[in-house]
Write a protein that binds this DNA or RNA. Structure first.
Lengths: 158, 158
DNA sequence: TTAAGATAGTCGCATCTGCAACGATCTAAA
DNA sequence: TTTAGATCGTTGCAGATGCGACTATCTTAA
């Protein structure tokens, strides 16, 4: 008889691990700063890139649905953490960027999240962390989840 | 200035990977058999264990909320894939087990899912898969996500 | 025995998020 | 230029799910 041990089944393990890790991190961005995951992803994308970028771009490269990003942008603008400027070249889209207030929050939040990540990975040696990152990279690659430079020009959908 | 590269940030990568892998698998259990994730988890748990078990037990060891399990059990019973028997010792809980029809579906589904898992991991060598599993195990362990024998007696909450 | 507290499972509620339709705008081809 | 099709962002809707309250039941201690 065919059997499957859920606890050795990689898809299940990834799911459970992701949920657990997310909930460990949400203590920081959710409870402390009132951000949800999509909102945090927007700030993370804007903070990492030098140039402002469109909602569509964020949706694509974080693999988050554009409607979810749209709602999160609205919320962030209400809190004046993010602002958008019209794009003269293409008036359908807006360039998003963090406000001074948004940047200040980002500056506070990042070290906290990096510390949490280290706590989660503290059970691994430095070499093991590199190995783990490399293995994740291979799987991402094979699933076409990598972020490439040309992705900046990617279109609708996700 | 503090920066964080979302694409090197393990929590984000895990989340994105889990979503992607789940959606690759859902082709099998969702589209083909009309099961959602909680329903699949119930069948997987019942199929792997020899003894029937309670909804609470499934909720705990799959880390799924008990209300979610409750609804999924209702749905599975409606489809006659699962049945429950009263527990004379404790009339609050029910013992769950697959029906013949449920077992047949399970038997069909398992090889398909295992094949999908292999497809996802095909970018890794046999050794790399072992390494990846071991690293996942370390992290799970440190986050207390491991399934232990005594978990069978675990109580409410999840 | 009785009473207080814990636990199993159910359900209403609120929230989150994907889907799809929509208006506005851009692009490309006739 | 005109028109068909694509794309950006928004929004209504529906489905999924966590939370908390609830009932029924069990356990433990007075």
């Amino acid at each position: 008889m065919a059997k499957l041990d859920l606890f050795r089944f990689v898809p299940f393990r990834l799911n459970r691990l992701a949920v657990e890790v997310s909930s460990a991190l949400s203590v920081e961005y959710q409870e402390r700063y009132g951000l949800d995951i999509p909102e945090w992803r927007i700030l993370a994308t804007l903070g990492f890139r030098v140039e402002p970028c469109s909602a569509q771009y964020i949706a694509h490269c974080t693999r988050t649905h554009k409607s979810t990003i749209s709602r999160a942008v609205t919320a962030l603008m209400k809190r004046q953490l993010v602002e958008r400027v019209e794009n003269a070249d293409d008036r359908r889209e807006f360039a998003l960027r963090m406000t001074r207030k948004g940047k200040a929050l980002y500056e506070e939040l990042i070290p906290r999240l990096l510390r949490r990540e280290q706590e989660i990975l503290c059970c691994l040696s430095a070499q093991e962390r590199r190995d783990f990152a490399a293995l994740l990279g291979k799987i991402e690659n094979s699933l076409d989840l990598v972020q490439t430079a040309k992705d900046a020009g990617v279109k609708d959908g996700y």
